[in-house]
Simulated scan of single mutants.
Amino acid sequence: MQLNVERGAPATGKTIRLIQTARASGQDEHQIITGNAYKPADLELLVRHRISRGAKVICIDECSEQHIECLQRLGGRLPDELTIHAVVSY
Rank of each mutant, 00 (worst) to 15 (best):
A41I: 09
N36F: 10
R23M: 13
L43K: 00
E29D: 06
A41P: 00
I51M: 03
H49S: 14
G26Y: 07
A41L: 08
A55W: 00
E29Q: 10
T34I: 15
E44G: 12
R48H: 13
V47N: 01
K39W: 08
Q20Y: 04
A24R: 04
K56P: 04
I51G: 07
D28M: 07
N36A: 10
R23C: 12
K39S: 11
N36I: 08
K56L: 12
T34G: 12
A37E: 08
V47L: 11
R50L: 14
D42I: 03
H49V: 07
V47S: 04
T34H: 08
A37P: 02
R53W: 03
V47P: 02
Q20K: 02
S52Q: 15
I51Q: 00
I33C: 06
L43S: 03
R53A: 04
A24H: 05
L45F: 04
I51W: 00
R48Y: 05
A37D: 09
G54F: 10
V47G: 03
A55Q: 04
I19G: 03
G26D: 13
G26C: 09
R23G: 09
I19T: 11
Q31R: 10
L46E: 15
G35W: 00
A55R: 01
E44Q: 14
L45C: 02
A55D: 04
R50C: 08
A55F: 01
P40Y: 00
G26W: 13
G54M: 13
A22T: 08
R48N: 13
